[in-house]
């Protein structure tokens, strides 16, 4: 199947019109373009691995159902992020206290180890650093984790994150500052500068 990557709002408009006219197969373009964004939010907010795929599916079902209500007043990515964020919040509210299993799994990519010029030991050390930091991120409140992901992984602006999380821009800046300050202090406490540079 030919996959298109949406990069312009005009293309999005055309695809949305096609879907609204009944061509539901065109929705695959939307799934393919925004799967990563939705997964980032779900990954940061939900720690039960078994639930993640179902929640991602639910997000896209909600996007499809409510497609006719999207008025192009905001970016489509912001709208989808908001749906993903609210879906995760609803899920967490239902499953309180949230399940904390499968917090982190090994992310070793053996192809990288073979291709890279850096020694395998160094890669393991770096992986370990990321692994340990991920564990610390997991301990942060859900809002902090989400905005770290939206800002650093998905490149959303403060205003867009504010729209997604329904918070003022100033609060977003403040949360982001506090989260990074905390994580940096952990990094500083546990690792020597030679290790991390």
């Amino acid at each position: 199947m030919n996959m298109l990557v949406i990069d312009q709002s005009s293309t999005e408009k055309k695809i949305i019109k096609k879907i609204l006219k009944g061509d539901h197969e065109s929705f695959e373009v939307i799934i393919e373009s925004y799967k990563k964004l939705v997964y980032h939010i779900v990954f940061r907010m939900i720690y039960n691995d078994a639930d993640r795929e179902d929640i991602c599916q639910d997000v896209f079902i909600k996007v499809y159902q409510n497609l006719s209500t999207f008025q192009f007043r905001s970016k489509f990515s912001t709208w989808i992020s908001r749906i993903a964020y609210n879906t995760c919040l609803n899920h967490l509210a239902k499953r309180s206290p949230q399940l904390m299993d499968d917090i982190i799994k090994s992310e070793t990519n053996w192809d990288d180890l073979l291709k890279s010029d850096i020694s395998p030991l160094k890669i393991v050390e770096k992986r370990d650093l990321k692994y340990r930091l991920e564990k610390e991120i997991a301990k942060l409140p859900v809002r902090y984790r989400t905005l770290l992901s939206l800002y650093h992984l998905d490149g959303l602006t403060y205003q867009e994150i504010g729209d997604v999380m329904d918070l003022p821009e100033g609060t977003i800046k403040s949360y982001l500052f506090r989260a990074r300050k905390y994580l940096k202090s952990l990094l500083q406490e546990n690792y020597q500068l030679e290790e991390i540079s």
Partner: peptide, 30 residues
């Protein structure tokens, strides 16, 4: 340097663990 390292880690992409049938499953539900 500490902050740059932190930023680099935060910007490292998360390994996606969605099944290969994810798109098909969503389309079937639709």
């Amino acid at each position: 340097k500490h902050y740059k390292k932190l930023y680099a880690i935060l910007e490292t992409d998360i390994e996606q663990r969605l099944s290969t049938e994810f798109n098909v499953n969503v389309l079937n539900r639709l």
